[in-house]
Amino acid sequence: MHEGAHAGNAPDGAILVVDDDEAILDIVSDVLRLEGYPVETAIDGEAALEAVERRRPLLVLLDMRMPRLDGWGFANALRERGIRLPILVMTAARDAAGWADEIGAQGYLAKPFDVAQLVEAVRSQAG
């Protein structure tokens, strides 16, 4: 219902979706693209850092438990590099709110979430 709402004035950066579950990357970026957001994806913290270095994203949707570099490691690496980005923790763990607090994220999306919750959360941070 909001399709194309932001197509005209797309912001510079993309939404960076980070998750080790490829199926989640597919569907979340699918929904956000349909909402008119440019989307980039990363399969773990390392790949996400590379993406951030290439192009500063508008917002990061961040899974926490990932191989190689997890959500905490990614947030630390950002802090060490002095990069400040709005982050939404996106996790299936019970304590999503607590983990979001731990890494100083702006908010969280607890799996399973629906389309409206996803769009609402992203809009609140990325406009």
Binding site: D21, A23, V28, K111
Partner: peptide, 11 residues
Amino acid sequence: DLRSPLTTLLL
């Protein structure tokens, strides 16, 4: 582990 596939399926 159940929540991730469930999220994808529901979305």
